[in-house]
Design a protein around this nucleic acid. Structure first.
Lengths: 257, 257
DNA sequence: GAGTGGTCTAGACCACGTC
DNA sequence: ACGTGGTCTAGACCACTCA
């Protein structure tokens, strides 16, 4: 139980190992307070910096949170929200006055809200190349910040080539109740095929701030490219999902696999 | 460009901010060396611990790597490998002597290898409940460690209820060339439907070690449940994918969305 | 051997939460 | 008022890399 100061493994790593195993084993349950830094210093005869290195390690693994004047605590696994990426049936959206996401969230008994911002931009390079934009060509961006029960939930940016949507409702800074996808269909670019790419990374400071993401929590970056019947990319949607609040779910039948 | 010691923002955060923006802006390109700790101490008139706090922050964001005796460097974005979760056509597997994953990797011009380990275990709670196992009921686990071009690539654990596979080839500790899924089909449990769940988190120390994952790199946890024609869960596959080496990709047609 | 990061100590002041 | 974590300093020794 004690610590070997002559081990080749750094003191602070040994300390982190012991605390971590107490968390994994359940001896320290979610929400439980860890010993104070003072106690750990005394117990392991280590300096405060060393103790804080160990605690910082756990925080960066997403295992603990801390607060000035409070203490260090085992992170409580937040109640998880599902992102149903494949909806049960496509016709549902037609039967409601809300967009697909709002309907999804309401069906889970939560309260959704979102702000929408529309602008004309040069998209990031990876998006521009997926949309096959020429050098300097622009796209309409509809950016959403979504909240559930008042807590920030996700960040979503949809890009549409101006050459396609330049005169449509999509460039208006309003919520489109029937869905932007329906507008695309109305102007002759119904999406018939999608490619999804999912990456994971640590959040940028902007994302940490906007979505109130704690230390040690990664984000999913979910990117969806929509193609019309002529196999032209008409929409790229990039969604940032804090990983402590989201499980991405897909339903597939064996023909697809 | 200088730093305000009277700002409410901590010194080490300001320092991290400046270095980070140099990385994002491209002034410090991937592979470039950051100033040495000594130089930063002099330049910003800060103590070494403060400088190290700033550099540690960047490392935890996955932006930099460092090594004793070498220096701090901007992380080079590794060449990314695609995990094609939906293959182009299902018949391909029948035409080759290799399993689906091996075929995928070879088609990308890389060299795959894997070790397989088979055991009878009580699965983790979430898996047990997806398989609807009774209290104490066991499952066969086929665990793979996969490498590509000699580098560790992914960790995969497939669970099959013993009540279904207890007498089949699946519990033999050998590679099954025609695929375990085919064996399942042969014993009357062809999978006709899948549910995928994708989560992201920081790796455990075991995963960091086995897959050689650097600090600040999260992992995808990809979980696939396979159901047979009677809608019984016959297989749960959990795959751990280091996020710096993997993009998860899905292809969907509009009928599925 | 010189320079780099990795680890560790001892002490200090401050901001915040709780009582 | 007191105890907590947040920030910062000044110094030390060690292990590794590279010329």
């Amino acid at each position: 139980m004690a610590i070997d100061p002559h081990s080749s493994r750094a003191l602070y790593r040994q300390l982190a190992d012991q605390l971590r195993s107490k968390i994994y084993s359940g001896e320290l349950r979610p929400g439980a307070q860890l010993p104070t830094e003072r106690e750990l210093m005394d117990q392991y005869d280590a300096s405060r910096n060393t103790v804080r290195l160990a605690l910082g390690q756990l925080a960066n693994e997403g295992l603990t949170v801390s607060g000035r004047g409070r203490g260090h605590f085992v992170r409580t696994s937040a109640p998880l929200l599902f992102l149903a990426t494949r909806s049960e049936s496509t016709d549902r959206r037609a039967t409601t006055a809300n967009d697909a996401w709002t309907t999804d969230v309401v069906s889970q008994g939560r309260t959704p809200a979102q702000t929408i911002e529309v602008s004309i931009v040069r998209p990031p390079e990876n998006v521009a190349s997926l949309l096959e934009l020429e050098e300097g060509e622009t796209a309409a961006m509809r950016k959403r910040v979504r909240t559930v029960d008042g807590e920030p939930n996700s960040l979503s940016m949809s890009y549409y080539p101006m050459s396609i949507v330049g005169t449509s409702e999509i460039i208006q800074p309003h919520d489109i109740v029937r869905g932007a996808n329906r507008v695309l269909a109305e102007i002759g670019h119904d999406q018939v095929r999608y490619t999804d790419q999912i990456t994971a990374r640590m959040p940028t400071p902007y994302e940490q701030d906007t979505l109130r993401i704690g230390a040690g929590i990664p984000v999913h970056e979910h990117l969806r490219v929509g193609y019309d019947a002529a196999d032209i990319a008409v929409r790229v949607a990039v969604t940032i999902l804090p990983a402590d609040r989201h499980i991405i779910q897909y339903e597939l039948t064996s023909a697809q696999r």
